[in-house]
């Protein structure tokens, strides 16, 4: 069955992130000039403007900053089988926020500041998505 949901269109800046996911690693950029860890990927560091950076592996732990429970599917045909599902902004221990889904828990059980950890789900042979479950 073909995968019907939106898939990331990789670009020169985001490719290392998604390749990391495929390898089971949650990778973040760290500025090698000032040490600032950033996400989403960008060429320049917003703190010191340096383009020099390295990719570090996040420990994959964080907390729920905010969340929603999608009950009405949009587009309907794509998400009808998935609702209700939880989208959250997760604050990783490394200090950056990342949007994802919270899985492995009933939507009504999700709480603010709840500790979560990354799990990887293969969407297609090329793309693996980083999701989060209760830690």
């Amino acid at each position: 069955m073909t995968y019907a949901k939106p898939l990331p269109a990789l670009d020169s800046e985001t490719q290392p992130f998604w390749e990391g996911c495929r390898a089971g690693k949650l990778r973040l950029q760290r500025c090698t000039q000032c040490g600032h860890v950033r996400f989403p990927p960008t060429r320049f560091c917003a703190k010191c403007r340096s383009a020099e950076h390295e990719w570090i592996d996040s420990a994959g732990h964080g907390r729920v900053f905010s969340w929603i429970v999608v009950r009405h599917p949009v587009p309907r045909d794509v998400y009808a089988a998935d609702v209700p599902y939880v989208v959250a902004l997760v604050t990783l221990d490394e200090g950056v926020r990342i949007p994802s889904n919270i899985v492995g828990i009933a939507p009504e059980e999700v709480r603010a500041d709840m500790p979560v950890r990354v799990v990887f789900r293969e969407a297609t042979p090329e793309i693996t998505l980083p999701l989060f479950e209760p830690a």
Binding site: P8, A9, T14, N101
Partner: peptide, 16 residues
């Protein structure tokens, strides 16, 4: 369905 730019970090999670 092809999530470009910043949308690649939102739409694949059904945040659209």
């Amino acid at each position: 369905m092809a999530a470009q730019g910043i949308t690649q970090f939102t739409a694949p999670f059904g945040w659209i």
